[in-house]
Amino acid sequence: MIFETPLIHGTLIKRYKRFLSDIRLDDGSIVVAHCTNSGSMKTCIEEGAEVYLSPATDPKRKTRYTWEMIKINGQWVGINTSHPNLIAFEAVKSGALKQLAGYTHVQREVKTGDSRIDIMAQNEHETCFIEVKNVTMKDGQFARFPDAVTTRGKKHLEELMRLKQEGIRAVMIYIIQRSDVDIFAPAHDIDLAYAQTLMQAHKAGVEIIPLQVKVSPSEIVIDKELPVDLDI
């Protein structure tokens, strides 16, 4: 995923009301930027840290900027939760992921049951439903999800299990927007119900694919798949 419009550099003053952040730009002016991440962002918030913003394209939008990334321990961490879906979609559509190659029709936001799943991929042999989640939380060497209780995320896992029981391929992709972690694991201490449901989904045959991406002010690209540890 390439940033088509040059990003704007600044430093974080504070995040507040979950969806707002005050940013000091390099010219000294202070702007309000939209924060798409509704989670706690507990390991990717550091006041005074470097950030990059993207300018809003909608002139009617109240906030003129969107907060894209923050530099933590010398590395960029992507915090825009709207990007992982697009990153996964582009990768599946282009056949860039060997685990999900060979699909001739790829569509976003498809309703199934009581849920809307992020991606549906099809060929003449099978249909595959793919849910995508954004991961930013670091716990030592682990990338963990979620960083706040998510009943919606649990519902998506349950829908994937239902689809799998019907003989449909079901995949859970985690896009890890930081490079300083080595293993993906659920956050048992934050949302035990989600962690337990993820373990159930795995046993039921739902595939888990954690993809670590490299984040930079010019682009976000898939780097590699991380190993999974559901027990820790």
Rank of each mutant, 00 (worst) to 15 (best):
R61Y: 03
K62I: 13
T66N: 15
T66Q: 13
M69Y: 08
M69R: 05
I72M: 13
N73L: 09
Q75G: 12
V77E: 00
G78H: 08
I79F: 02
S82T: 14
H83E: 13
P84W: 03
L86P: 04
L86R: 14
I87V: 11
F89K: 10
K93A: 10
K93H: 03
G95C: 08
L97P: 00
K98M: 02
K98F: 09
A101L: 07
A101Y: 10
G102K: 04
G102Q: 03
H105G: 05
Q107P: 02
Q107L: 12
Q107W: 10
R108P: 05
E109K: 13
V110R: 14
T112C: 11
I117W: 01
D118N: 09
I119K: 04
M120E: 08
Q122N: 10
E126D: 09
E126A: 09
E126F: 06
T127E: 12
F129I: 02
I130G: 05
E131V: 05
K133L: 03
V135S: 05
M137Y: 09
D139I: 02
Q141R: 15
F142Y: 15
F142M: 09
A148K: 15
R152T: 07
G153V: 01
K155F: 04
L157K: 09
L163C: 04
L163F: 01
Q165W: 03
E166L: 14
I168Y: 06
I173W: 03
Y174T: 08
R178W: 02
S179N: 13
S179D: 05
I183V: 15
A187R: 06
D189F: 11
I190E: 07
L198K: 12
M199P: 05
A201T: 05
V206S: 06
V206K: 08
